[in-house]
Design a protein around this nucleic acid. Structure first.
Ligand code: FES
Ligand code: FES
Lengths: 146, 146
DNA sequence: GTATACTCTACTAAGTTTATAGAGTTAGTA
DNA sequence: TACTAACTCTATAAACTTAGTAGAGTATAC
């Protein structure tokens, strides 16, 4: 498992949209400057997220992006897997792979499977609603403190 | 975290040497054919493992490799980290990294830390003695069945 | 009809991975 | 001693991935 910059950007974009869920669209430009992401790169990431059914877009003036589902219905693991691929630490234990014959019947196989399950157990147990709630709470605390 | 071929080969080589621990040296050639690893690539991997203090070598005729420590003293995680680098899923949560300022104080940081701990909890809890024992048991079972 | 914002394809520079090549060094042995 | 088996070391390269840039095209509000 490796979270690339693309994956990182995707997660941040989805989170930003989660925090704003229900308040209309947000432009790529806003998202990019807010999360400090190269604009043209973020364009591609958002298009990909759109094709993956995570976000929707509105074109033209006053266009922008918005979440395609409720934040509670998007798990961190969904975005990670969609953008950065399988979370398995080695090809052998990915779904589609069949090879992996080995004199040892691979003594490591069980380890990689355990690692996969452990990772899934974490990233599939956090939704963007959970994360957005944290953010909002922190923002409130901050505004009180002014 | 990503186990590359190099890491996979390193793990298999160390395991093969663990199974033979106490029985003298094993040549690169034997290791390579046994685990189906390109010979010249395995040479490099073994040299790296030697520099890492995992294996020792004997040169000249009847030379070869042997484990530098008792298999019980080598964890799977040690080899993985040495050969394939940090197990963290993202640079942000690696030891040395300091950057990672972010408007959200990164809501994901905790997740990546949890993932790191989960992975460590697995790969640092299996030694090559554990794995070698499994292999030997399986080999016995096999010879009985003939 | 024009400004704004999303859409799409192509391209590229840099880095990583997975090897291969070949010359050099060490040590047992006939 | 000469030979040979086996480790040592450096260089190179093809394929792939990553991270980002460029630019032309399309839709929509006003
Ligand atoms: S060779 Fe496939 S899991 Fe080890
Ligand atoms: S930006 Fe560093 S953990 Fe997210």
């Amino acid at each position: 498992m490796k979270i690339t910059y693309k994956g990182d950007y995707a997660l941040k974009a989805v989170l930003a949209l989660s925090v704003r869920y229900g308040t209309g669209v947000v432009t790529i430009h806003e998202l990019a400057s807010e999360a400090d992401i190269p604009l043209k790169f973020l364009e591609q990431v958002l298009l990909e997220l759109k094709r993956g059914g995570f976000v929707e877009s509105k074109r033209g003036k006053i266009g922008g992006y918005l979440l395609a589902k409720h934040p509670a219905e998007i798990k961190v693991g969904d975005v990670v897997r969609f953008v950065d691929g399988p979370i398995e630490p080695i090809t052998c234990v990915e779904k589609k792979y069949s090879g992996c014959r080995d004199i040892y019947k691979c003594a490591f196989r069980g380890i990689w499977q355990d690692v996969s399950k452990a990772i899934s157990g974490i990233i599939d147990n956090v939704t963007f609603e959970d994360l957005a709630r944290q953010i909002k709470k922190r923002q409130e605390a901050f505004s009180y403190s002014i």
